[in-house]
């Protein structure tokens, strides 16, 4: 099972392992990772699943759809070039070791 690390604004690192095929948002909420809300259940309607992808991983993720890009406009914390909505990222074996930062706030 691939492992993913969510680093909190405090610097605390939370590493979880999960089945491939799940969205990162689901993985985070099922492990009670603080700061990932996922209010709309992955429907690209809420932007409360915002993460900053650690730089080495940015290019390894599947590209954003136009819809995801538009919804990044509504995140509570200012998005950067490393921002993604993690409900749109499906876990694969290739993503083992993926490392992300959770924003201060999602709303």
């Amino acid at each position: 099972m691939p492992e993913v690390t969510f680093t909190q604004p405090s610097g605390e690192r939370i590493t979880v392992s999960a089945d491939v095929g799940r969205s990162l948002m689901k993985v985070a909420v099922e492990n009670l990772v603080p700061g990932i809300v996922g209010e709309c259940g992955g429907d690209l309607s809420c932007a409360t699943c915002h993460v900053f992808v650690d730089v080495p991983w940015v290019a390894k993720l599947p590209p954003m759809t136009a819809e995801e890009e538009q919804m990044l406009d509504v995140t509570a914390e200012e998005p950067t070039a490393a921002s993604r909505l993690c409900c749109q990222i499906t876990l694969t074996e290739d993503l083992d070791g993926l490392s992300l930062h959770v924003p201060e706030t999602q709303r």
């Binding site: 690209l44 932007a47 538009q70 919804m71 406009d73 509504v74």
Partner: peptide
């Protein structure tokens, strides 16, 4: 979505 996001 852009208008929705902005309006919110």
């Amino acid at each position: 979505r852009a208008d929705y996001a902005a309006a919110r």
